[in-house]
Write a protein that binds this DNA or RNA. Structure first.
Length: 885
RNA sequence: GGGAGCAUAGCUCAGUUGGUUUAGAGCAUCUGCCUUACAAGCAGAGGGUCCGCGGUUCGAACCCGUGUGCUCCCACCA
């Protein structure tokens, strides 16, 4: 069989993904095996997957595949999120480009466009998930606006309303004037900006030319001023009790009020109070019973109530007002000022505090069980130290959740109003009428449904339940079997939006936690540490990366440098490393195939009898024994790392096992001479090891491993579902001997290098050791690996040889080449100095009485051994030095 | 303003209850190799005041205090 020079991922990926799907390996149905349930954090249908998703999906696939190979009935549910505001904003923008104004469309017409959008981007996302190799159960694909899901959301709304946990009220909310909707507190992102603080003087109503100065960042809101507030203890203003002032430009007469809230030291010590446009002012207004004048429309333009600049955008109006205030002598001072401004997470526009009637969820009651579940450790957070405090703090200080959005894309609020504004909550219009009849004795009332939809997160919080129809068909078989989920993998940025709320919903509706473990991945940044963003153009395209490096390499690259919860500096370099790893494995396969071919041709020629079978096996006994133990040791290590969710470390461990232990050491140790056949027993063992290595790596790199598994020999199963064998016990002594062997080989090779011996030049090796027998099983490997054509033991120093000391043994290298004795001597002297310093430090420790008294016995014994070893080593070096002239 | 996390080789990070640590890995660097699986490779090597200071301890990268520098979260100071 002819194998390509390098591993070629493309065809392989396609072939195996199709095969896995056709075998329905990823499909799950409840059965007698334990369930391993993972629900994907549904990506928004606003666009394509970015590197953050890639990391997330990869982590989930690793966990799910490993569970599937470890006796679990693994079920990974894929899906997507309708992402109300973000998607609606994109659809509106798309329509605008097509020359269509959203307002010219009916709700139904608009939703048709939105669903088209969802189909398009949803399928792009699903395709990306598939290309990455994710083993999701496609039959279970769920969208947060699917019919049953829609029903679930409505059902929960009505239920919480009936329980008194949802209410409607006029509050100061965060207003996104570009999307024209309310936002929850969590959807507001604050950024530091440098703005200006304007000092304005308001004329006092005293009949004289007296003024009071205030400081503001928002001069365009003065038309909404309904008071000026000063601190009651501020002597500067004490005389103004009961006084009034006039708002500049519009001359509204407003009172001077007194409240502790005002900081006398800030600005001028006087605050203009604009209850309609500032949350603090709003609270002051409530307290002092002030009028509320709303001067800004829902689209961010000045309203009729502003009297001037009506219809102009608030930021345009600001500039004009400043100019006018200056011209008319009201603006007395401008200063630079840094402040924090809120921006809409979804549209990026400046958030406007605004009073409006919205729907809210009371959070205190729901938060309590969610807090307990995590604090008591029923749900385990990884890494715990980093996020437990954050989670706790938020839940302990949780505020009511504004859930209504003035949009069309989402679940429409099931509240119905009659012409007089009377309201009932019901699933359908018919039910609403019935309730109206009961409550108000009105038959067949004319009802209108609330125009608003619900916050996206009000649907996502039901995700772990409703993907199994746990809300719409409570207690169904699947929900009982798959809920609670095993592990949730998500970004730390949505701990409040999503994670905490899923726990709340789970505790409320299933009386059970939604998942046992939460694994937080860090944020993916570029290699300069910047966030990935469209503006910077530093976010690579996933499919391009897969085309360039292969899906396995992408998965490797993103996992290899990705510790849990820490940000990951994404660098294509590591994908290259992944691609190289693919090749390394591929080439090991080629080597084995070569051996196989040679073997079969030998068998054909019936010359295998001439192979000194027994002696070969003895020669390779040690290599086989060693690798078998090494393999089992690493399998146990990987097990333990996976249990602790240390996925990156587990990958590195497997990588090193394959590259270093298997390829660099083991394969070289058993490699037959030039054009020699390999022993059949050794060959078969090696194939088995290779298989096990592929199995171990499979969750991380599914395609290359499945391909190689099938190329190694004819298989009647697939690696994808091959169950892990239990880990065998490890003979540590063999491993120790293996380490010694490696150490000796490296030391001699180093010495060869330093003495500029060419790889092809052979040496004669003499070993001076107290335990010859420990070399009997490894001497043939040793001589081959250091290219010695002769190996023998000696009891005395060999003259004119290079001397290498490892532990207590000495190795003499004889060569025809002229030796650079000066360098040899130098190296030995350096080593001697080092050993002496070390010995001194150990001696100091051992002569410390308190150390000897307090240290644990095994520590003490170790120090004694260190001392003995160092002393022996020093003797060896000194003897060696004496042989060099 | 409040809170959390981080600081270890040029870079990205490991380092598990303080003692097999004379602090490891990968990448990068340097040296030598076109050795017939692999130059996307092989064989080696160099590289660190474990952020500064103080303390606890027989013993500190690890525990405590403090300073500095980053990062993130929360919060209504015009």
């Amino acid at each position: 069989m002819e194998l390509t020079k390098n591993f070629e991922p493309k065809a392989v990926e396609d072939k195996w993904y199709k095969h896995w799907l056709s075998q329905r390996y990823f499909n799950s149905k409840p059965n007698s095996r334990p369930a391993f349930t993972v629900v994907i954090p549904p990506p928004n249908v606003t666009g394509v997957l970015h590197m953050g998703h890639t990391l997330n999906e990869t982590v989930q696939d690793i966990l799910v595949r490993r569970a599937r190979m470890s006796g679990y009935n693994a079920c990974w549910v894929p899906g997507s999120d309708h992402a109300s505001i973000a998607t609606e904003a994109k659809v509106v923008a798309m329509l605008k480009e097509m020359g269509i104004d959203k307002n010219s469309l009916s709700r139904e017409e608009f939703l048709k466009y939105a669903f088209e959008w969802k189909e398009k981007y949803g399928s792009i996302i699903y395709n990306q998930i598939a290309r990455l190799g994710c083993s999701v159960d496609w039959d279970r694909t769920t969208f947060t606006m699917d019919d049953h899901y829609y029903q679930a959301v409505i059902k929960v709304f009505i239920d919480l309303y009936n329980k008194g946990l949802i209410y409607r009220g006029a509050r100061m909310i965060n207003w996104d004037s570009s999307a024209k909707t309310a936002l929850s507190d969590e959807e507001v992102e604050y950024k530091d900006i440098t703005g200006k603080l304007y000092h304005l003087r308001y004329k006092l109503d005293t009949g004289n030319e007296e003024y009071i100065s205030i400081a503001t960042q928002r001069p365009e809101t003065i038309m909404g001023d309904t008071a000026i507030c000063v601190n009651p203890n501020d002597e500067r203003y004490a005389h103004l009790k009961g006084a009034h002032a006039f708002v500049p430009l519009i001359n509204r007469r407003i009172p001077i009020i007194f409240d502790d809230y005002v900081d006398a030291a800030f600005g001028t010590g006087a605050l203009k109070v604009t209850p309609a446009h500032d949350i603090n002012d709003y609270n002051l207004g409530l307290k002092h019973n002030l009028e509320v004048v709303d001067t800004i429309n829902e689209d961010g333009t000045m309203s009729a109530a502003a009297q001037i600049y009506v219809g102009e955008d608030r930021f345009v109006a600001r500039k004009k007002i400043i100019k006018e205030l200056l011209e008319k002598g009201f603006l007395t001072k401008e200063e630079e000022y840094t402040t924090r401004l809120g921006y809409s997470q979804r549209t990026g526009s400046v958030v406007e505090p605004r009073i409006s009637t919205q729907w809210f969820v009371k959070m205190k009651e729901l938060a309590e069980p969610a807090l307990t579940a995590v604090v008591d450790g029923e749900i385990k957070i990884h890494p715990v130290d980093k996020f437990l405090a954050t989670y706790k703090y938020w839940l302990e200080n949780v505020k009511d959740w504004c859930i209504s959005r003035q949009l069309w894309w989402g679940q429409q609020i099931p509240a119905w109003y009659d012409e007089e504004g009377r309201m009932v909550v019901a699933e359908t219009e018919i039910e609403a009428k019935e309730i109206f009849n009961i409550q108000y004795s009105i038959l067949n009332a004319q009802l209108k449904q609330d125009a608003d939809v619900l916050d996206t997160w009000f649907s996502s919080w039901l995700w772990p339940m409703e993907v199994f129809k746990g809300i719409t068909e409570p207690g169904n078989e699947e929900a009982k079997y798959y809920y609670p989920g095993s592990v949730l993998v998500t970004g730390q940025d949505i701990i409040f939006f999503w994670v905490a709320r899923m726990v709340m919903a789970g505790m409320e509706y299933e009386k059970q936690i939604p998942f046992k473990d939460v694994y937080f991945t860090g944020m993916v940044r570029d290699k300069l540490g910047r966030k990935m963003s469209k503006q910077l153009g530093n976010s690579p395209d996933l499919l391009e990366l897969i085309d360039k490096y292969g899906a396995d390499a992408v998965r490797f690259g993103i996992m290899v440098s990705s510790p849990a919860g820490n940000d990951l500096m994404f660098d294509e370099n590591s994908l290259e490393q992944g691609r190289n790893f693919n090749n390394k494995i591929w080439n090991a396969l080629k080597l084995l195939k070569m051996w196989q071919d040679r073997q079969s041709s030998d068998v054909n020629r019936e010359t295998s009898a001439s192979t000194p079978h027994d002696s070969l096996l003895t020669t390779h006994d040690f290599a086989i024994d060693w690798f078998e133990n090494r393999l089992n040791k690493v399998k146990a290590e990987v097990d333990s790392l996976m249990k602790q969710f240390r996925l990156s470390e587990a990958l590195k461990t497997i990588y090193s096992l394959i590259w270093d232990d298997f390829c660099s050491w083991y394969l070289e140790w058993i490699k037959p001479g030039f054009e020699q056949p390999v022993d059949a027993g050794v060959y078969n063992k090696t194939i088995n090891y290779f298989e096990e290595l592929m199995q171990l790596l499979h969750p991380y790199m599914p395609f290359v491993t499945e391909e190689i598994y099938h190329l190694l020999k004819t298989q009647n199963d697939d690696l994808c579902v091959k169950q892990f064998a239990s880990v065998k016990t490890v003979d540590e002594e063999v491993l120790v001997q293996g380490e010694l062997l490696k150490q000796v080989i490296s030391a001699i090779r180093d010495s060869r290098n330093k003495n500029q011996l060419k790889p092809k030049e052979t040496i004669k090796l003499y070993i001076e050791t107290a335990s010859k027998e420990s070399y009997s099983s490894i001497e043939s490997i040793l001589s081959k690996q250091v290219n010695a054509d002769e190996l023998s033991f000696t009891n005395e120093a060999i003259a004119n040889a290079i001397i290498v000391a490892v532990e207590k043994d000495k190795f003499y290298i004889k060569t025809d080449k002229e030796l650079d004795t000066a360098t040899l001597k130098d190296d030995l002297l350096k080593d001697l100095l080092h050993q002496k310093e070390f010995l001194a430090s150990v001696k100091t420790k051992l002569s410390n009485e308190r150390f000897v008294q307090n240290a644990k016995p095994e520590i003490l014994a170790m120090e004694q051994k260190k001392k003995a070893d160092a002393e022996a080593r020093i003797r060896t070096i000194e003897e060696s030095l004496s042989t060099i002239s």
